[in-house]
């Protein structure tokens, strides 16, 4: 199911403000790609352009192309809704639907797509919760509110919700930043497992995390505040962390490691 993403000459704007400038990159299927860089460098903004979530914010627009297996996500005949169904997303803070049970949360995407059969839903929910390593913890209380889970469990619930619709790409926007170390570890293990089936892109502030989970790493930076963010360098994670080509990348990484 996993598919590749090719970004070419992408500029991202909010109103007249240019947030990201001139990014081109390729993201391989069945890999984990990490985006790192200082705050405000546009990595989250760029991530959101991969499923057109930036359009949710007023004034958000792009120039350039983002192609999923060769099809431009921004061509006129493509519906952003269809894009988001194909490219799933997990957010910084766990955001289960507060009024829904655990079961209903995971089933939400399928129900939106018209799946009504109980058996199909039940099977998909179990599969997704297992996929998110949450099944054993919640199987006895599927009808309880999702908001009653711990932060780490909620985040895995959100991952289950995202993978229930079988997307081809899974975007994660700092998925562990609101979690404790143990929950973080659980999510990282999970990422490692599900990369067999999905193309995963993760934004992280945590350098060690990028080193641990990703196959490839992209470093974003910005020249100064108010200037647009740019892609500085992208390559295999091992190379970026041991022997980066660009001086800025090295400064950033070594600075973080002290």
């Amino acid at each position: 199911m996993a598919q590749r993403i090719d970004v070419k000459d992408l500029n991202v704007y909010y109103g007249s403000f240019k947030a990201v400038e001139d990014v081109s990159m390729s993201i391989e299927p069945r890999t984990v790609t990490a985006f790192i860089g200082p705050s405000g460098c546009g990595k989250s903004t760029f991530l959101r352009t991969l499923n057109r979530m930036h359009e949710v914010i007023a004034g958000g627009r792009v120039e350039g192309t983002v192609a999923l297996n060769g099809r431009d996500l921004y061509s006129k005949d493509i519906d952003p809704v269809a894009v988001r169904r194909t490219v799933g997303m997990v957010f910084q803070r766990p955001n289960p639907f507060p009024t829904m049970s655990i079961f209903d949360n995971v089933a939400a995407g399928l129900r939106l797509n018209g799946v009504k059969t109980k058996a199909v839903l039940a099977e998909a929910v179990e599969r997704s919760l297992k996929g998110a390593n949450l099944w054993n913890e919640v199987k006895d209380r599927l009808d309880k509110p999702g908001a009653g889970l711990s932060g780490g469990q909620q985040q895995r619930l959100c991952i289950a919700r995202a993978i229930a619709v079988e997307p081809q790409v899974l975007l994660m926007d700092e998925p562990c930043s609101a979690l404790d170390p143990i929950s973080t570890l659980a999510i990282e293990d999970l990422i490692d497992e599900i990369k067999q089936q999905y193309t995963i892109v993760i934004v992280t502030h945590n350098m060690q995390q990028a080193a641990r989970v990703s196959d490839r790493t992209a470093f974003f930076n910005l020249a100064a505040t108010g200037k647009p963010g740019r892609l500085i360098e992208m390559g295999d994670t091992a190379k970026i962390f041991s022997n980066p080509t660009e001086k800025a990348t090295e400064d950033y990484i070594s600075g973080r490691f002290g």
Binding site: N51, M53, V56, V81, A82, V83, R84, R85, T86, G88, M89, F91, R93, N95, P96, F97, P98, A108, G109, L112, N113, C158, R161, A162, V165
Partner: peptide
């Protein structure tokens, strides 16, 4: 919360 709305949109709603 914007988070809930985004969660729905990200599912392709």
């Amino acid at each position: 919360p914007a988070a809930h709305k985004e969660a729905a949109l990200a599912l392709g709603a």
